[in-house]
Design a binder for these strands. Structure first.
Length: 262
DNA sequence: AAATATAGCAACCGCGTTGTA
DNA sequence: GTACAACGCGGTTGCTATATT
């Protein structure tokens, strides 16, 4: 298992639920941009890049989970035929699916096809949807990188295009919660960090959503309650991130973290 | 039941692009 | 205009669960 080396280096490997919780919290607070900043402020020993990836591929509430539906599979085949390995582009046409997911699907799919074709190598029967592609690799013969390039590069937003927290808040999360909770069983086994299920996390986020002056602090702490309102107003009126980091948010984070550990 | 192979998926890495000071 | 930082993407790796022998 690839876990962190020491205090000074960044942590790698599977995310724990505690980390997920922290990340969710901070994305909720700060929006899903500025990943390096989030990584620093959250106290997570992760790179911003890693945080973004985790959000995009796992924590984003817009994610669909589970196997690709038949129509999605067809769409992937069609779009790959059209766009080649432009996974992000393909993913934009499949709401709730990530480029990573599609890439993985394609990989296993082509592997299967390759094996099937090996078995029937004498008369390779190709499915119609694969008629334009090499069956043993992901490289299309009519790779359209240039060929069928759309005239206008549309600014479609994929669900995983990070667009700030307002999107997250505006969209009802009811269904998303269900999705998010479907795969919480992994990443356990790291001591006591697995105490929060995704359900718990969403509950907590709900509490934050209902932010009519609801403190997200340890009730037993003697510190003044930090409210969502206070934090957000501080955030938006602050000039420099450093100052903010060192004051209110830092305090909020510490309170949050200590509450989590206790 | 144990060993091995395979599938599925999460996460990392490197690099190109974009934004900002 | 330039240098640097951050972001986004595609390729790849490695782990875990499941199937097969």
């Amino acid at each position: 298992m690839r876990i962190q080396d020491d205090d000074t280096t960044q942590r790698k490997g599977p995310w724990t639920e505690h980390e997920d919780f922290q990340l969710l919290f901070h994305v909720h607070m700060l929006g899903d941009r500025r990943w390096d900043f989030i990584a620093n402020v959250s106290g997570l020993k992760r790179s911003g890049k890693s945080c973004r990836l985790r959000w995009v591929n796992y924590l984003n509430p817009g994610l669909k989970r589970g196997k690709l539906a038949p129509h999605e599979e067809r769409l992937v085949l069609e779009l790959h035929n059209k766009f080649g390995n432009r996974w992000s582009k393909i993913a934009r046409k499949l709401p709730g699916r990530t480029d990573n997911e599609i890439k993985n699907y394609w990989r296993t799919h082509t592997r299967k096809r390759a094996q099937e074709n090996k078995k029937t190598s004498a008369s390779p029967a190709r499915s119609p949807s694969f008629s334009h592609c090499s069956s043993s690799s992901s490289i299309c013969t009519n790779h359209p990188t240039n060929a069928s390039k759309p005239t206008t590069e549309t600014k479609e937003r994929s669900f995983y295009d990070t667009g700030g927290v307002e999107m997250f808040i505006k969209e009802g999360k009811t269904d998303n919660k269900k999705r998010a909770t479907t795969r919480v069983t992994n990443n356990m086994g790291e001591g006591q960090e697995g105490n929060h299920s995704m359900e718990d996390i969403w509950k907590d986020i709900d509490l934050l959503d209902d932010n009519s002056v609801k403190p997200f602090f340890d009730p037993y702490s003697e510190r003044a309650p930090l409210t969502w309102d206070i934090c957000m107003s501080t955030w938006w009126t602050m000039d420099g991130q450093e100052e903010f980091t060192n004051n209110t948010f830092h305090q909020a984070t510490q309170t949050f973290n200590s509450g989590l550990v206790d």
